[in-house]
Design a protein around this nucleic acid. Structure first.
Lengths: 143, 143
DNA sequence: CTAAAACCTCACGTTGACGTCAAGGGCAAG
DNA sequence: CTTGCCCTTGACGTCAACGTGAGGTTTTAG
């Protein structure tokens, strides 16, 4: 079977999108990635599938479940959603927003530790010798 | 056994931090949450444990593994890290940064869908009737 | 034409963060 | 003293996102 220039089989897509072939078959099983088939049954993808898989990866790494992704991908494709889905979309957006906030808070804490370790200050040295106020300095920094 | 005013047992901590008692015992098992014990073996926590558990939850929801959390929590407590840990801290911070970027991208896509669904535009209606350019509008919006 | 590489479909294994019983101990109220 | 609720330690179950073969077919390189 001869493929078009812009077409590829599962191995090439996996290499280009930096995922395993198993993951791609799993995505298809979950209904979030579709493929054409050759007469003999091998999967064929267009070149746009690379971006598609990257998007899926982003959504996964964003903590979305495959069912949620299956829910919103068609909306992303068509650019609109059935009105009864709007509440789910709002809920997902809000969930993402709080996760981002949590992540930013965690990152700030990490950066404080990095900063203090790389550039210890006089203040920091005083703190280090004053056991009673240790936890209130960094842990309490978000209050 | 009579507890101090500021102390609590596992059930109250679970209620205040909105997690299960199972989760709290799991955190202890993983070395990321410590407890005192009464003579009879029951766990006792100070009031600061509530914030502690919330922090742990944030780190989990940020996608950090328990081993990673066990690694960085002492640094967050003391406000500094052993220099040989700096590379791990940098790596974690960078990982968090890319996850945040992925999340923001995902959220932008979601918000576009929400916006177009709630306030359909003329442009949107044209797109909806022009099948050949569907995918390039939203999916290609990040290019 | 043949051998290797890539593909196919099951189907069981893995890991992390818990859920969920099971069998019992501790402690204030009636 | 017993009832009832909260606590204890195991230990097995679950779920998602794959990993990892088994066993067979298709495609490609020589």
């Amino acid at each position: 079977m001869q493929l078009m220039e812009t077409e590829m089989r599962i191995g090439e897509l996996a290499a280009r999108a930096r995922v395993s072939t198993r993951a791609l078959r799993y995505y298809e099983e979950q209904g979030i990635l579709h493929s054409e088939r050759t007469p003999s049954g091998q999967r064929v993808y267009g070149s746009s599938a690379v971006e598609r898989v990257r998007l899926i990866q982003h959504l996964f790494s964003a903590g979305l479940a495959s069912r949620t992704i299956a829910l919103i991908l068609p909306c992303v494709d068509t650019g609109h959603a059935p009105p009864e889905m709007l509440s789910s979309l709002h809920a997902e957006r809000d969930r993402i927003t709080t996760v981002i906030a949590d992540l930013e808070q965690a990152r700030r804490r990490l950066e404080q530790v990095i900063e203090l370790t790389e550039h210890p200050t006089v203040e920091q040295c005083e703190i280090a010798t004053d056991a009673t106020s240790r936890t209130s300095v960094i842990v309490g920094a978000s209050a």
